[in-house]
């Protein structure tokens, strides 16, 4: 069977999926990036190989996305390396064909994508602020000593959510500490945080956007029922969470890979052996000009695969050779 692999390496999670020719998900894997993108991609590849072992599956195309997409693309040999906004939009419109609004909250960024008749008409991404993203929730859950998986359910127990300033994660944290020291029960504080995060998202990312149903909520944070409830309360609309909400970026990448390989009829996929290859990353500061660019070298089994990070073309030769 012909299949396509999508890899989405974000700041918090790394997701891999295998889809078939019709775009049906055959394998989905969700791992924590834990600051080790190369290792976790290799681990993911090992798990994918394991899952497809007995099924006659041939990988005909690979797509990489997420903030580590360039790195991932080199490691797995991707046919297409695309930004996560495009990947998410492609996946959402594939799985929910009549979707009009996509809310996506990931580890370190959040975005909104508006589609009309299956076509993206508008999108926005959070600017430079981390308030209202998954890692902030993670951080607060850890501080309150609540496993992140139970965070949402706890918020639902609240009867009287407290008001928390959601504009800035630093202010939000001091607000939460203040409320906690005043004696407010934890569920109320957690629910207040969910409300604040949603308010912040809608005021910043969703500012002035026309949010029409069906609304799809995806990204790792969609696992949080508290946030979902807060969205439903704030928007007055039903929020649809797709089955594969946490790996939508990877699904999009796989779909894009299918598109990309349709024309050229071959794949750059390096095979599942990449999980055992010894990848090395090293970096140095170029002293060629006052820009002091930080150049990164990626090598496999001692051989230089790719190099990037420079503002001028001086160090790009290897990469160009690889991409043609």
């Amino acid at each position: 069977m012909q299949a396509y692999l999508g890899v989405d390496v974000g700041s918090v999670s790394t997701n891999l999926v295998v889809i078939n020719e019709d775009g049906k998900v055959l394998v989905d894997i969700y791992l924590r990036t834990a600051g080790q993108p190369i290792k976790v991609v290799q681990e993911g590849m090992r798990q994918v190989a394991e899952a497809v072992k007995d099924k006659k599956i041939e990988i005909c195309g690979v797509g990489a996305t997420g903030s580590a997409r360039t790195l991932t693309g080199v490691i797995v040999g991707a046919d297409t390396v695309k930004n996560e906004i495009t990947a998410h939009a492609v996946a959402a419109s594939h799985l929910v064909p009549d979707v009009q609004t996509v809310l996506e909250i990931g580890g370190q960024d959040s975005k909104i994508i508006l589609l009309r008749d299956g076509v993206v008409v508008d999108f926005a991404m959070n600017t430079v602020c981390a308030a209202g993203t998954g890692s902030f929730l993670d951080h607060q859950a850890a501080r309150l000593n609540i496993p992140i998986e139970e965070f949402g359910a706890l918020a639902l127990q609240s009867t009287n959510p407290v008001r928390i300033a959601g504009r800035c994660s630093v202010f939000a944290e001091s607000d939460m500490i203040h409320k906690q020291q005043m004696g407010h029960p934890t569920p109320d504080i957690v629910a207040g945080l969910c409300d604040a995060l949603v308010r912040n998202y809608l005021n910043n990312v969703g500012k002035g956007k026309e949010i029409l149903p069906p609304v799809v909520f995806q990204g790792g944070v969609a696992a949080n029922v508290g946030i979902r409830a807060a969205f439903e309360k704030e928007l007055g609309l039903e929020i649809y969470i797709p089955e594969y909400f946490a790996v939508m970026g990877a699904i999009g990448a796989a779909l894009l890979a299918k598109e990309a390989t349709k024309e050229k009829q071959k794949t750059n996929f390096r095979g599942f052996a990449v999980s055992t290859t010894d990848y090395q990353a090293s970096s140095f500061e170029c002293k060629g000009c006052p820009n002091h660019c930080e150049i990164v070298n990626i090598s496999a089994d001692g051989q230089l695969l790719a190099r990037w990070g420079g503002r001028c073309g001086k160090w790009d030769t290897v990469q160009q050779m690889k991409t043609g």
Partner: peptide
């Protein structure tokens, strides 16, 4: 460069998709 790169690339991509150029 990541932030600018991602946004600009997505912007161009999505307009191309909208126009059916992909």
């Amino acid at each position: 460069e990541a932030g600018v790169e991602t946004r600009v690339e997505a912007f161009v991509d999505l307009i191309k998709r909208k126009k059916g150029m992909v």
